[in-house]
Design a protein around this nucleic acid. Structure first.
Length: 572
DNA sequence: GCCGTTTTCGGCCCGACTGTTTTCAGTCG
């Protein structure tokens, strides 16, 4: 799939045009197509072959031609020429906070600075403070920007940032000056990774909130402190922004700070067509400047004649258009999950016993779980031999006799070996309720081979589910070179279920692929892959991914009651 | 560069904070 590759090229074009001081709206057009391509649940080559490029929002004649050129020749002349005009190191300067396009251009033209090392040297030698618009403060700020850049890790996992945000919200919510409080931004949209934490507070006394915030024990550094908006750095170099508005503006501010930027722009354009103006304080009549609403978030959508759009959908992936036609999906709810079908225990590499996992599942109100330890060839993970698996099945049968409200299903996470064969015979697999097949080796095989492995596994009639289908680990490992289209088509054909692995580093399938699966008529299972009792709690991250992927209750098999689930699993 | 039940040309989201300014540009989200 060339979607991401093309997206990166357009992103670079936008950055170069910014430094060159091009028409900002032209730049916006390139930034828009960058996001659109990133979020497109269909292979761009497929769309091109079907002649549908012009149906993609943000693609006009100019960009369509460029996409075509890249897909047919593998190159883009416009981009190649553009790259020659600005050294790549100058573009990288934009990654330093405090340095924007104007500053980058100034530094390059006046002092011939074309990489970050040169910038640091120039600042330390006090060369930049005499440039127009620069001063002493600019020096310290740019140095801090470089420092942060060097220390910067990738974006933060949702599973890591969420508890930190909840802690700060908890701290501030105790103040008597705090009226309402919520986190917003990508965290509220439940994006898989978070750039920073945004918190919104309503209060009649913003100055008290600001003071308390900047004095929180978590604070490592204060980046900015204004009367209604402050910014700090906490551990792991995570940025936290707090914004205070009056109670009457809470809904508008929440909507505004939740974003995404692209969603908000589209919403505001929609408002302008009706002579309405939206900002973080409310929704106003353009002519009279009269305030129409803003206390509740729902009002913003209502006034535009739209149903409420859940935060997880606000990415400008067609949700506003769907809302206009009243065709928003009825998203799966966190409470609709009835069980977890991918769990490990002490029998292989898990930390807890089957009984302990049962207790954890009961606390979550589950009706069933499947025990799916590793299979024999995964020696380092204590994979079960045929004999051990037999013993486990017996134990589970015994346990089920004493259990009342919850049923344990027998299962295995069977390894798909390098040659595409499975780690157990059909005879053994046929005895189990749930067979999950997964790849744990040969990640670097070329696309054709690794795709063939998975396709072959799906054709085995005892395999119910494919675990972590793309194999990516966020921030650590790219996905395997698997042909997603082929995999999904085969899943559809064989009725194989694809997993949404809720492990914080995995979230695999991701939101975009979830939507692709739904469009192809493939069902999914949200599973934690928990290796301990605590691990069951990550289910919520998996549900968040599903919601971001527009999935509904009917798309997810572990929303089914037990009898229907067993019927669905049976393909034997 | 895109886009159109006010437009095929003339628009294109909106505001806070900072620092270097004498009223505003740059950056950020």
């Amino acid at each position: 799939m060339k979607n991401l590759e093309l997206s990166r090229i357009f992103e670079q074009i936008a950055r170069i045009l910014k430094i060159k001081g091009e028409n900002p709206f032209k730049i916006r057009a390139y930034e828009k197509i960058t996001l659109v391509l990133e979020n497109l649940p269909i292979d761009i080559e497929t769309i091109y072959r079907q002649g549908g490029l012009s149906n993609i929002p943000g693609v006009g004649a100019g960009i369509a031609k460029k996409i075509e050129e890249f897909l047919t020749t593998g190159k883009l002349e416009y981009y190649e020429k553009l790259k020659e005009t600005i050294p790549s190191g100058v573009i990288e300067l934009l990654d330093i906070s405090e340095v924007g396009p104007k500053t980058a251009k100034l530094l390059y033209e006046q002092l011939d600075i074309d990489n970050i090392e040169k910038l640091e040297k120039a600042v330390r030698q006090h060369q930049i403070k005499d440039l127009p618009g620069m001063g002493e403060k600019s020096e310290t700020n740019i140095l801090r920007g470089i420092e942060l850049y060097k220390r910067r890790k990738e974006r933060f996992l949702l599973g890591l940032a969420l508890p930190l945000a909840e802690e700060i919200v908890e701290n501030l919510s105790h103040l008597k000056e705090t009226n309402k409080i919520s986190f917003a931004g990508s965290l509220r949209r439940k994006k898989e990774t978070i750039g920073d934490i945004d918190i919104l507070v309503t209060s009649q006394r913003p100055e008290t909130i600001m003071k308390t915030f900047t004095y929180l024990p978590q604070v490592k550094e204060i980046l900015a402190e204004g009367p209604t908006k402050s910014s700090i750095i906490i551990k792991d170099d995570i940025h936290v922004d707090v914004r205070v508005v009056e109670p009457i503006s809470f809904g508008a501010a929440l909507q505004y700070f939740t974003g995404s930027k692209a969603h908000n722009i589209k919403l505001r354009e929609l408002a302008l067509k009706r002579n309405l103006k939206i900002n973080e304080y409310g929704i106003f009549d353009v002519k009279t400047d009269r305030r129409i609403a803003g206390e509740r978030e729902e009002e913003i959508y209502q006034i535009l004649n739209l149903p409420f759009i859940p935060p997880e959908l606000r990415e400008d992936r067609g949700e506003i258009e769907a809302a206009q036609e009243n065709k928003l999906p009825k998203l799966i709810e966190y409470s609709q999950i009835r069980g977890d079908l991918h769990l490990h225990t002490k029998w292989s590499d898990g930390a807890h016993t089957i009984r302990q996992m049962v207790e954890a599942a009961k606390k979550r109100g589950y009706k069933y779980i499947a025990i799916t330890d590793h299979s024999q060839s995964l020696k380092f993970a204590g994979g079960l031999t045929e004999e051990r698996l037999g013993e486990q099945i017996e134990l589970i049968q015994k346990l089920n006799q004493e259990l009342k409200d919850l049923t344990i299903l027998t299962g295995i996470e069977v390894d798909i070996k390098s040659d595409g064969s499975l780690d157990f015979s059909d005879e053994i697999l046929s005895k189990l309720d749930v067979v999950i097949a997964a790849i744990h080796s040969g990640f670097k095989q070329e696309s054709k081979i690794i795709t063939e492995r998975i396709v072959k596994a799906m054709q085995n009639r005892f395999v119910n589910i494919i675990a972590h289908p793309t194999g990516r680990l966020i921030g650590y490992r790219e996905s395997y070179q698997i042909d997603i289209n082929k995999m999904m088509n085969m899943a559809e054909k064989t009725g194989t279920i694809l997993e949404i692995n809720a492990y914080p580093e995995r979230l695999d399938l991701n939101d975009v692929y979830c939507r692709m699966a739904k469009d192809k008529g493939v069902q999914l299972a949200i599973e934690t892959d928990a290796h301990s009792a605590d691990g069951l709690a990550t289910m919520d991250l998996g549900v968040a991914v599903a919601r971001r992927g527009w999935l509904e209750e009917k798309d997810i098999i572990n929303t089914l009651p037990l009898d229907k689930l067993l019927k669905r699993l049976k393909r034997k």
